[in-house]
């Protein structure tokens, strides 16, 4: 069983890195880029636990370590 965790900056939190990359794309001619935010993708391999319990524990991992919920949101996919 695997968990995929997406950590993204909350709305309204400035993302200078995303802005710099968006500017670069624009300079390269990709004028359609209207906004760009950079986040993190974390893939976790899990053993044993049932899907429901697994998700609960991954949520715990996000709250405690994987995301800083002051400025970040997270989304979990169990596959």
């Amino acid at each position: 069983m695997k968990a995929k965790v997406y950590v993204t900056l909350k709305k309204g939190v400035l993302d200078p890195q995303g802005k710099a990359v968006a500017n670069a794309l624009e300079t390269m001619g990709y004028k359609e880029v209207k906004g760009l935010r950079i986040g993190k993708f974390i893939e976790i391999e899990l053993d044993g636990a049932s899907q429901k319990d697994g998700e609960k524990r991954v949520k715990e991992m996000c709250e405690k370590l994987l995301a800083n919920t002051v400025v970040e949101d997270y989304r979990i996919e169990i596959v």
Partner: peptide, 16 residues
């Protein structure tokens, strides 16, 4: 701040 002993967070410098 990460430990919650002080509020807020220190993010990447605006200039990167």
């Amino acid at each position: 701040t990460e430990a919650g002993l002080l509020p807020g967070v220190l993010m990447r410098n605006k200039t990167l």
